[in-house]
Simulated scan of single mutants.
Amino acid sequence: MAVGSRVTVIPSGDTEPQVGVVVEDYAGNVIDNSDLGRDWAPVLRWTIALDDGRLVFAAEGGLELA
């Protein structure tokens, strides 16, 4: 998985998987939630431009190569 990879975003919940392209990798910015002192707004590793025009963020394990 790398910037430019075509991926399927695996949603948590009742939404359908979405396909798009990885546009950024924030591997150096990901921090364990326990280090933040909170469990909201964690840094997610991947930014994906979906085919429908939306920009989404996904954690490690939330993507599959398309």
Rank of each mutant, 00 (worst) to 15 (best):
Y26R: 14
G28K: 14
V56P: 02
G4F: 04
W46P: 01
R38P: 02
V22P: 00
T15W: 09
D32F: 08
V30W: 12
V19S: 12
S5I: 01
I10D: 10
Y26V: 01
N33W: 10
L50N: 05
G37I: 00
A41L: 15
W40G: 02
V43R: 13
V56E: 07
T15E: 15
F57N: 06
I10G: 04
N33V: 12
V22K: 04
V23N: 12
S12H: 13
P17F: 14
I48C: 06
V30T: 08
V19W: 05
V30P: 09
N29E: 15
L44S: 04
T47N: 10
L65Q: 05
V3C: 03
M1W: 08
R6S: 10
P17I: 12
Q18A: 15
Y26F: 14
D14K: 14
P11K: 03
V19I: 15
A66P: 00
G20E: 11
G13Q: 11
G13Y: 13
I10Y: 04
D51F: 03
G13S: 10
E16A: 15
N29F: 13
A59V: 05
N29W: 13
A58L: 03
G4M: 00
I10A: 05
D51V: 01
R45W: 09
G4S: 00
S5W: 01
G62P: 01
E64K: 02
T8N: 02
T8P: 00
V9G: 01
V9H: 07
A41R: 15
D39H: 08
P17V: 10
G28R: 14
A49E: 15
V3W: 06
D35V: 01
E16G: 04
V22F: 08
V56I: 13
I31H: 00
F57L: 03
V23Y: 08
G62A: 08
E16H: 10
P42W: 13
A58D: 07
D14P: 04
R38I: 03
I10C: 08
A2E: 12
G53H: 11
G53F: 09
P11M: 00
